[in-house]
């Protein structure tokens, strides 16, 4: 009997060691400890641009740092659940996260959200992409131009439902901006898990129009499943050369989501340096840039300090606009 038990135990132990995956490279420095994986938290459901960009960059970071990088989705509350997990993590370099503006910038500014973090809780490591907002409708929609849509909504406020990726996210701000400048009040429906849910709702015709990022719709445009009425950027997006901008149609509205990566504040200086440079290399890696281009994402790299400054600017911009998207209930 005893020998049998020992045999089973031994079998277990061998099983444990036998399935050891091959390790790639490995640096000698104190961080990262060889074999200890780095978790990359994404505050949105899998499938949309934030998640895709993180999954593209993870293996390149892996090579640069010599340890596993695992993407972990923590969707909900328009990114806040992921940001909370990120800022609550130990600042040891083994947890980093994708941070997107405006959601990460704004969520701590509204006291009703009860966010446990502020801007100072993050250490921005580097920015990767700037993804412009746009508005579009299904091909058979009665609205054929941006003007049609906006005039219709002006006449009958809240008659057109549009998806957002959560309360006070980029989409929500863009809608507020439109309302402020044109008087057209859309009815937002908050799909707080991220763009994949918002797209599904649009494709299923549960909402009347789509507000989102260029990267969300690039593939849908080629399939003829969405007609883009206007892109909220200064010039036409290289990914959607046929889609007019808001400015072309007489509306001075620009909006975009800026996405980067941050660590919890308090990272040791040497770890910060290592991770920042690895991230910079990974973001600017030609293969990564090409893969992002495939997804409709234009790489706009900003280093850690530049990203910090950008974050501060964003904070003051959005602070002014916040009352527009506050819950007044």
């Amino acid at each position: 009997m005893k020998t049998k038990i020992t045999a089973v135990t031994l079998a277990f132990a061998t099983a444990l060691t036998a399935c050891a995956p091959q390790q790639t490279g490995g640096t000698a420095g104190a961080w990262p400890r060889k074999g200890k994986p780095i978790t990359l938290i994404v505050g949105f459901a899998p499938g949309a641009a934030v998640d895709a960009a993180a999954r593209v960059i993870a293996p390149v970071l892996e090579k640069e740092l010599g340890t596993n990088v695992e993407v972990l989705n923590k969707p909900g509350a328009g990114g806040q659940i992921g940001y909370t997990a990120l800022t609550n993590a130990k600042p040891d370099g083994y947890t980093i996260g994708a941070t997107g503006s405006p959601s990460v910038v704004v969520s701590p500014l509204d006291p009703s959200r009860g966010a446990t973090y502020t801007r100072a809780s993050f250490l921005p490591l580097g920015m990767q992409v700037l993804d412009p907002m746009l508005i579009g409708v299904a091909p058979g929609s009665p609205y054929t131009t941006l003007k049609d849509l906006i005039e219709a909504v002006k006449k009958k406020p809240k008659s057109v439902t549009v998806p957002t990726t959560g309360v006070q996210t980029g989409e929500h701000f863009a809608l507020a901006d439109i309302q402020q400048r044109t008087g057209a009040q859309f009815a937002p429906v908050h799909f707080s898990e991220g763009a994949s849910q918002a797209i599904a709702a649009f494709l299923g015709k549960h909402v009347n129009a789509y507000v989102g990022n260029v990267s969300d719709v690039r593939d849908l445009v080629t399939q003829g499943k969405i007609k883009v009425l206007g892109v909220m950027s200064g010039e036409r997006s290289p990914f959607l050369p046929d889609a007019p901008t808001f400015a072309e149609q007489g509306y001075q509205i620009e909006a975009a989501t800026a996405r980067g990566y941050s660590a919890p504040a308090g990272l040791p200086a040497d770890v910060q340096k290592k991770i920042e440079s690895a991230l910079g290399k990974a973001i600017e890696d030609p293969a990564v840039v090409a893969k992002l281009k495939n997804l409709g994402l234009a790489t706009v790299y900003k280093s850690g300090p530049q990203y910090t400054t950008y974050w501060q600017e964003q904070e003051s911009t959005f602070k002014n606009a916040l009352p527009l998207v506050r819950n007044e209930g």
Partner: peptide, 21 residues
């Protein structure tokens, strides 16, 4: 228990950071 997945308010967490998730 945790952060309200829509509006972001913490619910029934008794002030504990661990329960936010």
């Amino acid at each position: 228990v945790g952060i309200d997945p829509v509006a972001g308010a913490p619910r029934f967490t008794f002030g504990s950071e661990r329960l936010l998730d």
